[in-house]
Amino acid sequence: MNKWLLITGCVASFSAFAAAPQELLRQYEAQARQENAAFAGFSAARGATFFKTERTRSDGQTASCATCHTADPRNPGRTRANKVIEPLAPVANPLRFTDPAKVEKWFGRNCKDVLERACTAQEKGDFIQYLIDLK
Protein backbone atom coordinates (compact mmCIF):
# COMPACT_ATOMS: atom_id res chain seq x y z
CA MET A 1 0.00 0.00 0.00
CA ASN A 2 2.68 2.44 1.10
CA LYS A 3 4.78 1.56 -1.88
CA TRP A 4 1.94 2.33 -4.28
CA LEU A 5 1.24 5.61 -2.59
CA LEU A 6 4.89 6.53 -2.97
CA ILE A 7 4.98 5.61 -6.64
CA THR A 8 1.76 7.49 -7.38
CA GLY A 9 3.12 10.47 -5.49
CA CYS A 10 6.36 10.46 -7.45
CA VAL A 11 4.58 10.22 -10.79
CA ALA A 12 2.16 12.97 -9.82
CA SER A 13 4.88 15.36 -8.66
CA PHE A 14 7.00 14.61 -11.73
CA SER A 15 4.21 15.52 -14.09
CA ALA A 16 3.44 18.63 -12.08
CA PHE A 17 6.96 20.01 -12.55
CA ALA A 18 8.06 18.60 -15.87
CA ALA A 19 6.81 20.43 -18.91
CA ALA A 20 6.95 18.91 -22.35
CA PRO A 21 9.18 20.69 -24.89
CA GLN A 22 6.03 21.41 -26.90
CA GLU A 23 4.58 23.34 -23.99
CA LEU A 24 7.73 25.42 -23.73
CA LEU A 25 7.50 26.14 -27.46
CA ARG A 26 3.96 27.46 -26.98
CA GLN A 27 5.23 29.84 -24.31
CA TYR A 28 7.95 31.15 -26.62
CA GLU A 29 5.39 31.43 -29.40
CA ALA A 30 3.20 33.71 -27.29
CA GLN A 31 6.26 35.79 -26.47
CA ALA A 32 7.37 35.91 -30.11
CA ARG A 33 3.96 37.21 -31.15
CA GLN A 34 4.34 40.02 -28.64
CA GLU A 35 7.82 40.85 -29.88
CA ASN A 36 6.80 40.76 -33.54
CA ALA A 37 3.28 41.17 -34.90
CA ALA A 38 4.35 39.50 -38.16
CA PHE A 39 5.48 36.29 -36.38
CA ALA A 40 5.01 33.35 -38.76
CA GLY A 41 5.97 30.28 -36.77
CA PHE A 42 9.21 28.60 -35.77
CA SER A 43 11.56 26.97 -38.24
CA ALA A 44 13.86 24.04 -37.56
CA ALA A 45 15.99 25.02 -40.57
CA ARG A 46 16.53 28.51 -39.15
CA GLY A 47 17.31 26.94 -35.79
CA ALA A 48 19.94 24.70 -37.40
CA THR A 49 21.62 27.71 -39.03
CA PHE A 50 21.48 29.62 -35.75
CA PHE A 51 23.10 26.68 -33.95
CA LYS A 52 26.00 26.40 -36.38
CA THR A 53 26.67 30.05 -37.18
CA GLU A 54 30.08 31.17 -35.95
CA ARG A 55 30.10 34.69 -34.61
CA THR A 56 33.11 36.86 -33.97
CA ARG A 57 32.81 38.45 -30.57
CA SER A 58 34.10 41.87 -29.59
CA ASP A 59 37.17 40.21 -28.01
CA GLY A 60 38.08 38.72 -31.40
CA GLN A 61 37.23 35.14 -30.41
CA THR A 62 34.80 33.14 -32.50
CA ALA A 63 31.99 31.17 -30.93
CA SER A 64 28.90 29.24 -31.89
CA CYS A 65 26.53 26.93 -30.03
CA ALA A 66 28.45 24.08 -31.67
CA THR A 67 31.71 25.21 -30.04
CA CYS A 68 30.70 23.44 -26.82
CA HIS A 69 27.74 21.31 -27.94
CA THR A 70 29.56 19.92 -31.05
CA ALA A 71 28.20 20.09 -34.60
CA ASP A 72 25.77 17.24 -33.85
CA PRO A 73 23.67 18.08 -30.76
CA ARG A 74 22.78 14.42 -30.38
CA ASN A 75 26.33 13.95 -29.15
CA PRO A 76 27.63 15.00 -25.75
CA GLY A 77 29.65 18.19 -25.71
CA ARG A 78 32.39 19.55 -23.47
CA THR A 79 32.72 22.70 -21.38
CA ARG A 80 35.92 24.70 -21.52
CA ALA A 81 36.83 23.14 -18.18
CA ASN A 82 36.63 19.73 -19.91
CA LYS A 83 33.42 18.56 -18.30
CA VAL A 84 30.94 16.53 -20.32
CA ILE A 85 27.73 18.32 -21.39
CA GLU A 86 24.81 15.96 -21.85
CA PRO A 87 23.37 16.01 -25.40
CA LEU A 88 21.01 18.89 -26.22
CA ALA A 89 18.70 16.92 -28.50
CA PRO A 90 15.79 15.32 -26.61
CA VAL A 91 16.15 12.20 -28.77
CA ALA A 92 19.44 11.56 -26.98
CA ASN A 93 18.52 13.19 -23.66
CA PRO A 94 14.78 13.25 -22.84
CA LEU A 95 15.29 15.65 -19.92
CA ARG A 96 16.10 18.54 -22.27
CA PHE A 97 13.53 21.36 -22.47
CA THR A 98 11.42 19.95 -19.64
CA ASP A 99 12.52 22.50 -17.02
CA PRO A 100 11.62 26.04 -18.16
CA ALA A 101 13.73 27.75 -15.48
CA LYS A 102 16.80 25.77 -16.51
CA VAL A 103 16.20 26.54 -20.19
CA GLU A 104 15.91 30.27 -19.46
CA LYS A 105 19.00 30.20 -17.27
CA TRP A 106 21.13 28.72 -20.05
CA PHE A 107 19.67 30.87 -22.84
CA GLY A 108 20.36 33.85 -20.60
CA ARG A 109 24.01 32.90 -20.13
CA ASN A 110 24.90 31.42 -23.48
CA CYS A 111 23.21 34.03 -25.68
CA LYS A 112 25.26 36.69 -23.92
CA ASP A 113 28.41 34.63 -24.40
CA VAL A 114 27.96 33.75 -28.05
CA LEU A 115 25.89 36.69 -29.37
CA GLU A 116 26.74 39.27 -26.71
CA ARG A 117 23.05 40.05 -26.37
CA ALA A 118 19.85 38.32 -25.23
CA CYS A 119 18.17 35.99 -27.71
CA THR A 120 14.74 36.81 -29.07
CA ALA A 121 11.79 34.49 -28.48
CA GLN A 122 11.90 33.76 -32.22
CA GLU A 123 15.50 32.57 -31.97
CA LYS A 124 14.79 30.47 -28.88
CA GLY A 125 11.79 28.84 -30.54
CA ASP A 126 13.67 28.09 -33.78
CA PHE A 127 16.51 26.62 -31.73
CA ILE A 128 14.19 24.33 -29.74
CA GLN A 129 12.24 23.37 -32.88
CA TYR A 130 15.49 22.30 -34.55
CA LEU A 131 16.52 20.20 -31.55
CA ILE A 132 13.21 18.44 -30.95
CA ASP A 133 12.92 17.60 -34.66
CA LEU A 134 16.25 15.72 -34.62
CA LYS A 135 15.65 11.99 -34.70
Binding site: R80, G108, R109, N110, K112, D113
Partner: peptide, 9 residues
Protein backbone atom coordinates in the same frame (compact mmCIF):
# COMPACT_ATOMS: atom_id res chain seq x y z
CA UNK B 1 28.55 37.39 -15.36
CA UNK B 2 32.21 37.39 -16.48
CA UNK B 3 33.33 34.07 -15.03
CA UNK B 4 36.64 33.20 -16.71
CA UNK B 5 35.30 34.44 -20.03
CA UNK B 6 31.86 32.97 -19.61
CA UNK B 7 28.54 34.15 -18.34
CA UNK B 8 27.66 32.09 -15.28
CA UNK B 9 25.10 34.48 -13.79
Amino acid sequence: DRHFGENAA
